[in-house]
């Protein structure tokens, strides 16, 4: 079933962390890069704090089935998301997680943890965690361009909050680049056909 020209991305976290918005921005940016895209979402009946997910599929051909059954890339911001939606990943999937969701698991180089929430708080507001994580996802995977992501972010986010979110996004890109310079990462996600190790805007 798996097609090399198709990349299946799952974003998960808890209600209120902006997973839906991050998914929508990622999908919109990929569309502007000229990819075929679908974005689906699921959330529980809770208004806040329940586990949520957004699935984004990128492909060079039309996408028949829009839901991710086995993700090539997982981005996870919460423990609840990790437990509920984090297990449906392909073998060799690249998993980018917040340190509070799951600590780096020794011997599992494809789980990469980042202090997104803590850094977002240091920048002034944890609400920008989602954009920071998107920045890291971009830097590590290159599945979407920085130009498109920044463009969509500026259009989709309230004007008063754009600067803070862009700053968080750039910080996320830096965190991703730092991680790339750590050993082992250049091969992470290789099975999914994702380029790692290249850094360019």
């Amino acid at each position: 079933m798996k097609l090399s020209d198709t990349i299946r991305i799952r974003l998960t976290g808890r209600g209120g962390q902006g997973i839906m918005l991050a998914g929508a921005i990622l999908a919109d940016a990929a569309m502007r890069d000229g990819r075929q895209v679908t974005e689906t979402q699921e959330y529980g009946p809770e208004a806040r704090l329940g586990a949520t997910r957004a699935d984004v599929i990128l492909s060079d051909r039309p996408i028949a089935f829009p839901e991710v059954e086995q993700a090539d890339i997982l981005l996870c911001l919460s423990r609840g998301g990790w437990l509920k939606y984090g297990t449906q990943v392909a073998s060799g999937a690249l998993r980018l997680v917040d340190v509070t969701a799951v600590a780096r698991e020794p011997g599992d180089p494809e789980v990469r943890s980042f202090p997104w929430r803590a850094r977002a708080r240091e920048l002034g507001d944890e609400v920008v965690t989602n954009m920071m994580a998107l920045g890291t996802l971009q830097a590590v995977t290159q599945v979407v361009s920085v130009k498109s992501l920044r463009e969509v972010l500026q259009e989709r986010i309230k004007p008063a909050l754009v600067a803070a979110n862009l700053a968080a996004f750039d910080e996320g890109v830096n965190l991703g680049r730092d991680e790339l310079s750590a050993p082992g990462v250049a091969t992470a996600g290789r099975d999914a056909g994702i380029r790692g190790g290249e850094i360019h805007d």
């Binding site: 919109d28 569309m31 075929q36 895209v37 679908t38 974005e39 689906t40 979402q41 839901e67």
Partner: peptide, 9 residues
């Protein structure tokens, strides 16, 4: 619910 909430270009 899937078609209603999904986004496509």
């Amino acid at each position: 619910a899937v078609i209603a909430h999904m986004r496509e270009p």
